[in-house]
Design a protein around this nucleic acid. Structure first.
Lengths: 183, 183
DNA sequence: CGGTCTCTTGACGGAGTTCAAAGCTAGTGG
DNA sequence: CCACTAGCTTTGAACTCCGTCAAGAGACCG
């Protein structure tokens, strides 16, 4: 997507942050809005419900972008949290700086648009997955689409991402396993 | 967002299509990929499930963009349908032409990126709505966020959009009405 | 005024949740 | 290197929201 030179320019305005497992990248109510590029490791963004339940918005592994809130329309406080699920290395950039950078490097505008488009595509799939399928099929499709994520994060978080309870996922996995044996 | 002059340039490469109610803008399995801007009226995009049930992906009213598939990564056939829910006027543009136009008019690249960002924001809300709430609250939030859509499209389509059955929505609306009276 | 589309209502069944408890695994400190 | 704890997964039983099936009532349009 980007040449080595362009990547270097961009990396110069980034700061690097190393996270240990379970460490926060962004805490709820933070007012400082940034964009993050995952160099190594895996993080998640999530939101807390009225009873403090966690609802996972996104997983991001190496090569993915993540943000407290991709639309920078308003500058109200973030309601999202982001934390690391593995030891991770993150490139951080201020959103304003990135905006300016896009003006200087037109190609970057295009690049970022394509990042957004990919994310849009993934989100569309996710919505369709919610609309069309039962828990079992939802999980099956998640495994198909994000095989490595499944290996690297706890199952109750995948349940949260899919909008089902950990117990339900556990039961369905069992059911799927016995089905497979019969075949 | 755009100046009048820029709008005119853009409009020159669009073709206009007038649709009657229920008329298709895009039919499933069409191979020709376009972008559409709604000038007047309201349309929906939807996908058909294994038993021919319709799952609504998006509503688009005046001023909104819609496409068979916003990610133009692959050129496989569209699995989406788009049809009009009211008599509508649509600006149509070939995706390739639009790509070229963005190179010529850098501002357009930026404009389109913001369109994507808004859509991303809306989709994020939608996912959170699925994750966090029961049918009743899902509907309540939909009404808050898209008040005019509620007025202009049949309720069973809103049910489809929310991922619930028309009967359930009907029952919940009744419940909500009686609740309100008590207060 | 007949037909299609839409919304409503009822009874029943099923997928998923809740609550509770026990087993399992991995990381930490002695 | 083992023991212990905290986090994760599994399992069971009762319960609930929602879906399914079926029927009927409006509403709109030709």
């Amino acid at each position: 997507m980007l040449t080595k030179a362009e990547e270097d320019i961009i990396k110069s305005v980034f700061t690097v942050k190393k996270l240990r497992k379970r460490q926060f990248l962004v805490q709820q109510d933070a007012s400082y809005r940034q964009l993050f590029f995952i160099e190594k490791g895996i993080v998640r963004s999530y939101i807390k419900g009225p009873n403090d339940e966690e609802h996972i918005v996104q997983f991001a592994a190496e090569g993915s972008w993540i943000s407290e809130d991709f639309n920078q329309l308003s500058d109200i406080k973030s309601v999202y949290n982001i934390d690391a699920l593995e030891p991770s290395e993150i490139l951080c950039i201020d959103r304003e700086v990135f905006q300016q950078l896009m003006v200087q490097v037109p190609k970057l505008e295009r690049y970022f648009r394509m990042v957004l488009q990919k994310r849009l595509y993934a989100l569309n799939l996710r919505v369709l997955n919610y609309l069309m399928h039962f828990a079992e099929e939802k999980y099956r499709r998640f495994v198909d689409f994000y095989p490595e994520i499944v290996q690297r994060v706890p199952q109750h978080m995948i349940a949260s991402y899919l909008g089902i309870k950990p117990e339900t996922l556990s039961r369905n996995r069992k059911k799927m396993a016995t089905k497979k044996k019969e075949a």
